[in-house]
Design a binder for these strands. Structure first.
Lengths: 204, 204
DNA sequence: ACCTGAACACCGTTCAAGT
DNA sequence: ACCTGAACACCGTTCAAGT
């Protein structure tokens, strides 16, 4: 027998509305673009009044910013997973880092675009810039490790990482539908990473 | 004496409404972001009814797409100007091309973002992709010239150009407010171009 | 604290009508 | 052809009120 007081999941409006809104917003984003996200529509889907989101987000932009923060956090987690294994060689680690970068962008294309769009807003919250900085910190960290083991040239690791990430980021932005002239972005990224690794080798 | 029938410029609604809408939309875009563009507000500014834009653009997205096309056309013109002088060396020409790329992005940041956002839409019009392709054709052309004069390694010039443009495009997307850790994007771009030129030199 | 409905000032888009 | 006002179905945001 089912105890009504326990088993029936009271819909939302019980503490997880914020998370539910973010999840629904991301679904709407990936389904039809940023323009598709409507606070009223999200509220309808979740069965709450259209003023409820106000409790968790000051306005629509605040929800989009929170979505961007969530994106950067998961992006950071993906990059972290890619470089977790400390027994890999530098070459393997940088390759895995680059692949994780491109994989994330291809898996969540509209979220990825939103993340950078939000980050570029003049009045973007500090939290957003910090989340982005944390994700982009994995590049310099990996470069520094490569330098420590003598596999990477000297120089500011942040600058070296910027060069590497820029090449991948640009590829993602320029290529349409994950391809450039029929060649898969994965393949192009792999080529860029390989060339990058060669370029980073210290001259003997 | 002034002939009323000739000298008084009848405001808009006389053939140039389309151009006037695009201009006003771009002004609104650079002022406050894409969300700031409202067909009704643009119409108010231009002194026409709010249904007049319909004559020139099927819907709001069509206006945004046209704005993106206009952006790619001016981007192409800027890249064309940068490589017009055929007496420059390959090194100078590629440097000027890269600088023109970054200059345009920094001068029209929101338009530049809109251009790529529009290009990535699944149902983007053919015209938009063509305008983008024309702009991005300057890279391969310059690479091919470098190969002809023996200053650039062999290989598909489109692939070589993609690598170069990707690095610049990524720099633009990753850096915030035209800077990365306090260093100007111009300077970073110059470094990337120089490294690129070195990397493209044929091995003797 | 958290949620509600009503109200306000906007939208984009459609349509029948004017010149 | 080009433009118009009225109407429709939405928005985001605010506010006084409920529990």
């Amino acid at each position: 027998m089912i105890d009504q007081g326990m088993a029936i999941p009271r819909p939302y409006h019980h503490g997880n509305l914020r998370a539910a809104l973010l999840q629904a917003a991301e679904k709407a984003l990936e389904a039809g673009g940023i323009q598709q996200i409507s606070l009223r529509e999200l509220s309808r889907e979740l069965g709450v009044s259209h003023t409820s989101p106000r409790r968790h987000f000051a306005d629509k932009q605040a929800l989009l910013d929170a979505l961007a923060v969530s994106g950067f956090e998961r992006f950071e987690a993906a990059l972290s997973r890619a470089t977790r294994r400390k027994d890999h060689s530098f070459k393997t680690r940088l390759t895995r880092l680059g692949q994780a970068y491109v994989d994330f962008a291809l898996k969540h294309p509209l979220l990825f675009a939103l993340m950078f769009e939000a980050k570029h807003r003049p009045d973007a919250p500090r939290e957003l810039q910090q989340a982005a900085d944390k994700a982009f910190g994995h590049g310099p960290a990996t470069m520094a490790e490569g330098q420590a083991s003598g596999e990477v040239v000297r120089g500011d690791p942040a600058r070296l990482a910027l060069g590497a990430f820029s090449a991948l980021q640009g590829l993602i932005t320029i290529s349409t539908k994950g391809k450039f002239k029929g060649v898969d972005l994965d393949t192009l990224a792999r080529e860029i990473i390989d060339r990058m690794i060669t370029g980073l080798q210290p001259r003997k």
